[in-house]
Amino acid sequence: MGAPALSSVGVAPARAGVTPMAYWPLVWRRLRRDRAAVAGLALVAILALLALAAPWLAPYDPAEQFRDGLTPAGQPLPSTLPEGSLRFLLGTDAVGRDLFSRLLHGARVSLTVGVLANLLTVAIGTLLGATAGYWGGWVETLLMRVTDMMMAFPTLLLAMALVAILKPSMGIIIAVIGLVYWTWIARVIYGQVLILREREFVTAARALGTPRRRILLAHILPHLLPTVIVWGTLGIATNVMLEASLSYLGIGVQPPVPSWGGMIQQGQAYYRTAPWLVVAPGVAIMLTVLAFNLLGDGLRDALDPIQRGRD
């Protein structure tokens, strides 16, 4: 068992020793070679562009409720009107608004909430989980008990209390998601660190007298990267959905601002009569998740400190 231990020790310092100039171009080169990752990157870029350009691309004001936007019986209009015109590209929603315009504008809210809230959860979760797992002792006890408490606390009550105290806004939504869901990542990371800290390359580094903080940052964190990326990419979809369930409680973005989750929320009862109300934002969410996943996988491979030896 001596050889693997040596090689492990060999990898980590080597990674730390590589100058940023040499490391990041390498990552970029490997990312570019990965066709799936490039597709993911392109898709992310397109989505971001669509969101940014929404005011210019959208044919209508996303909040405008058209008099002729509903059937006389009050049902949403499908995309193909009887006259065959394409007045509403994707049809209208339950209030008679243009679904396509709302989809474009919704991208702004949903992408922002999805990405930012996720950054927040991942950052808090990784930091606390890794610290607790590696530091041990009373730090571990304290941090993990706080995590337990946060995890055991009912989100619904917390969200209701927060919305009653604060005015709902995008910032609040991001904060609520971030504050509530970091516990998950913290636990996962904690579990991994418990194992990592007993791995040969860490014990060896410790034996060599490397400072604790340095071991955590240089040796343990890189090994957590795959997990962090998985959470970072899948979490985006979950957050978009969470925003929807928060809007159910009244803490979501306030009407008439569109969000994909909120659109699904409003549209799901129409699953038989106007299925496009859910399908359109659902596909948008799926494309977003797909994009970030492809990119995430590519990044994971490109950044992988162990893999690098194979190049």
Partner: peptide
Amino acid sequence: GRLPDRLGMLVALLGVSAPPFWLGLMLLY
């Protein structure tokens, strides 16, 4: 990186992107 990988991922993504209430309704329906 091969087909089963991509396919598996697609299925997984469908699962995570489908809103649970709607998914339940569809399954019931």
